Amino acid sequence: MREVQQKIDTMILHLGGYWRPLSGLARLLEEVGEVGGALRKDAQDELKEELLDVLVISTCLANQYAIALQQPEAEVGETKERLYFQIVEEAGEVARILNAYEGDKKLKRNRQGQSLQHHIEQLQRAVLSLGAIHHLNLFDSLFALIEEKSARDFGRFDHTPDPITESSVRAYQTHQSGRYWGGIPVKSFERFDRYIEREQHIERFYRIAGIEGLDGFVIQQKRDGLILPATLPVQEGFITTFEQYGPETFLVIRPDK
């Protein structure tokens, strides 16, 4: 599954970048509806296409929260109707969580085992199981779809800044593995408080990190970069560390576990 996530990440960057999470959610729900339409019409080729789209978009959402998905195993003994109901149910749970993370729903700490990762994995398991009933080898087709889209449609999507694609986190993860988001580039001699005002994702990180298990928020420091106060004003429950890797310096905000 790690290879699938990496290939989809490369494809999405080739196409222009990730959508905003709520936009990605809208696309996911659209494709779930189209799966239902293909089932109602008994359109096999259309069903395969829509199931693949659900796999791709749900994996994109997982990537945006630095989730390492587990390889789903197809279930046996379920009917196609019950599997479709499960797809709808799990897509609804993904919507509930993302509305709390990114929308205006009140954020509540998830019940044990009810993280975004859990529901995306359950959704993908139901998708693969439904494909198996229809004798569709979705994983083989998924790799072919990724290769096809990666070979064309360059820049198809408008670029949307995302904390999983910032150069800071990509550079940091050449030195450390884990579940990290990254901050936008620092301006020369920029005060830390001004940087935090410009950075649109740090507040999201504070809300989500403890629930989804994010390891840190990475800011790449330049030689003429941030002007830092004696005490960094980070939210209660978080700490800061400085890490040096050769010529590269990173300021990392971490949950105080």
Rank of each mutant, 00 (worst) to 15 (best):
V88T: 10
W19E: 13
L69E: 06
T249A: 05
Y195M: 02
A66H: 12
H14G: 05
S177A: 14
I8L: 15
E203W: 05
L15M: 13
M1Y: 10
K257F: 15
E30P: 08
E90V: 05
G24P: 06
K222P: 05
W181D: 03
H119M: 03
L232Y: 10
S58F: 03
E46Y: 04
A151S: 15
L123I: 07
S141C: 02
R207D: 11
F242T: 14
L47Q: 01
A26M: 13
K257T: 14
V169Y: 01
G213L: 08
Q117W: 07
L83D: 00
L51G: 01
E78P: 05
Y101T: 03
E34D: 09
V88N: 03
G210P: 08
S115I: 00
D104I: 11
S115M: 06
P72H: 10
R198H: 07
G77T: 07
L138R: 02
F192H: 06
G37T: 00
L51H: 00
G131K: 08
I8W: 06
L98P: 02
F85G: 09
V32F: 04
R111E: 05
K7N: 08
F192R: 09
G77S: 05
Q6P: 01
G24A: 15
Q6T: 13
R194Q: 07
V32K: 03
